[in-house]
Design a protein around this nucleic acid. Sequence first.
DNA 1: CGGAAGATTGATCAGTTTCAAGCTCCGTGG
DNA 2: CCACGGAGCTTGAAACTGATCAATCTTCCG
Lengths: 228, 228
Amino acid sequence: MADVAGHLAGISLFRGLLRAQYEELSRIGVKRSFRKGERIFSEGDEGTGFYVVCGGRVKIFKVSTEGKEQILHLCGPGESFGEVSVFTGQGFPADAVAALPSTVLFFPRVAFSSLIRQDPALALNMMAQLSKRLRQFAGLIEDLSLKEVPGRLAKYLLYLSGRDGDETVDLDVSKGQLAALLGTIPETLSRILAKLNRLGLICSRGAQIRILDRRGLEEIGLEGKRLP
Amino acid sequence: MADVAGHLAGISLFRGLLRAQYEELSRIGVKRSFRKGERIFSEGDEGTGFYVVCGGRVKIFKVSTEGKEQILHLCGPGESFGEVSVFTGQGFPADAVAALPSTVLFFPRVAFSSLIRQDPALALNMMAQLSKRLRQFAGLIEDLSLKEVPGRLAKYLLYLSGRDGDETVDLDVSKGQLAALLGTIPETLSRILAKLNRLGLICSRGAQIRILDRRGLEEIGLEGKRLP
DNA sequence: CGGAAGATTGATCAGTTTCAAGCTCCGTGG
DNA sequence: CCACGGAGCTTGAAACTGATCAATCTTCCG
């Protein structure tokens, strides 16, 4: 129990709450662990509650009938997923699988729902979180429909390097997974990485990528581009 | 003012509220009208509040640097947009333009925010609405990345006919707008409609489309398809 | 009636996927 | 310790989808 409470403070969904509220939450939260590749839920499963990532990484994705997958989001520690089911009561809208060995907190729908009813502040935090997610999705839709793959990759690399502030970034997922995140396939990703290397924009060695020409990468995302 | 209150009951965001709450809302809601094509806000504008459509239709979209637009959502009467700004306080994440002559209610951020603070039920309704939107976006992302244009069109036609229950559907937007909604351009849409006609799946005359082979349309969305 | 915006059709082309074949890395078992 | 084997990654050639450019046709208002 105390263990659960220890995690709560780092969760954006619950930021700024009072001690009493944390105690309430820790009373209903259940810790669960998943091995790498283990499924947390499938699309259409009844939404009995929502999850928060404590450690590891969870992949949220959709699969087409032919097996192609589009990653909607990679959730790291402190991020939540499955909240939508709390309010719609419908099944989960996507699949969730542990991309790394992961531990999560599970909050049952019914218990959390009544908690929210007593506590407006909790609801406000949650709305801000949902709004943030909505904004991210709008960005993803924009990227998928307006930009081509090189632009999406460039944007992602800049995002990673911006976060770490460094010139050398580490892909925290396999290239196959990165391809799915960018809405493409491993072959295409591989070719584009090779092209960016050839142009001297980056220097990639496995999962390590050094950014050589930041300006150049930014341009790819903007204009109608041609990579020679 | 009474005029404002009259609209509130039909708004899903505010469903199930008490009379007193409607009165509160009508006190802070402001009615605004827009001509067809008139801009309501632009991406990046400060989010001073959110909107609810009373009449007409509002197009929410993103534009690339080259001018190509991707419609995120077409809001009809009773639907809300711009809510995200209430909680994030950041600028709007997309553009909004009246696709038809439209009237909307505007709810200023500050006033609504304090209203929500006193009223948990209002917050719960709003969360359900945000969740619903989130679910729609997940569907849109899936469509854009997993399906090809014929599949997206087929799904949209089935959606329209399912809603009206009828075999003959009316496109409620111009073909150019429909193309943007499907993430493509008018030429491509035109070709695919012609192809569906040729195959005997539909019979289109202008904005009127009669569905001849429901099963056939469904198949297009599912399998790796080839339209001869 | 005229004209402009929207819609269709054709030809061409770039980007991406598909299919197929090597390659590299790394863990496992002999 | 080294060889084997497999998964993931890379590369090549061909096919395909959708975008672009350009021209024509339709529609629908003023």
